[in-house]
Design a protein around this nucleic acid. Sequence first.
DNA 1: AACGCATCCAACCGCATCTTG
DNA 2: GCAAGATGCGGTTGGATGCGT
Length: 379
Amino acid sequence: MGRAPCCDKANVKKGPWSPEEDAKLKAYIEQHGTGGNWIALPQKIGLKRCGKSCRLRWLNYLRPNIKHGGFSEEEDNIICSLYISIGSRWSIIAAQLPGRTDNDIKNYWNTRLKKKLLGKQRKEHQARKANSLKQEMKKCIANSSNLMLTATGNTTQNPNYFTHDHETPLPTMPSIYTINQDLALNDQSSIRKLLIKLGGRFSSNDHHHHHQQQQQQQQSHGLDRNSSYNNLHHQNPLDNFPSSTTSTAANTQQFYDNNNNNNNNNSFSQFLMNTTDQYNLEMAAASVQMSLQGINSNFQMGYDMNPVPEGSCLEGLEGSSYNCSTSGPISAESTSWDGMGPLAYAQTVSEFDRCAQPDHMLQADYAFEELHSRYIGLH
DNA sequence: AACGCATCCAACCGCATCTTG
DNA sequence: GCAAGATGCGGTTGGATGCGT
């Protein structure tokens, strides 16, 4: 049996609001408040609208101090950072931007910010592609001079070459895989993949499901040494926090009670400390990644949104700002971890995913785990 | 001017969660 | 503890507008 509708669908007006309707709703709410019942409100003031529609209109448009359009660079950065860190939890993101509504931010992200981000990513990707194409061409030409192919040479043995009508082997274009990657960025999952690469942690249901599955696997088989990047995120106790629930002191405590009551070593304050640190670190990671995208990123720790709890392992770094730039691949030799904290961590995350060379991968992997255990200490 | 396409954004919809009796 | 209704959230839609041809 389906749910009863919240209003008489046949008798309510839909579509854009008229100035008269706006005036009625605004005047009533300013004088009487909502009365705690949106469903009954439209009948009280003689509006042929659904209660949900009234609520939306008030929250997104009529409410005082609402800002529309004209997002600043700073707001862009906050939205990007938070999206990378917590995903599409627009109401939480909106809570960090006074005067902005979740709907506005969602629209802004979907229509502009996402494109801006992907546009920069695509440009860099194309630049890298062009560069690697040049190198590949050079390599092919160099190789071709050393190759003696017969006129009937079997081209399938080396996909990098084909035989022309004449006998001279010519280099082919590089694999279309890279081109397909660009095209694939148009769909949501690819965007998510990209942003996960950029250091993000996502909270949609399928992701939770995936997390739960992996957590179960890890519990039964031990940690997978080859996916330490994922392991870090699995350690965050808030990963199982209901995605569509705004976290409040009460339900965070409730969540802690439900999930940690068997673990006497992990007090609620320690739990908060770990998760806040985790959040700060992820924000720093996002900051570095945005810097890689060419977006000015100035992540500051210890203010308002992301305070460092008393006794935290990040104490002393409060107020630090990470206006990040990266230089060269991280290696065990070239990087001094002490004192770098989140920045080093973030660079490691970045390098871990960017390194294509197996030896770099190993170095990043090693450094990553080292840092992880030192700063997070959740192993 | 007319048309088609792209973009924007207000509003809707369905679902999950919360509240209340 | 349960059911029903209310609320909040995020994804999606469709009309308005802008822009290029």
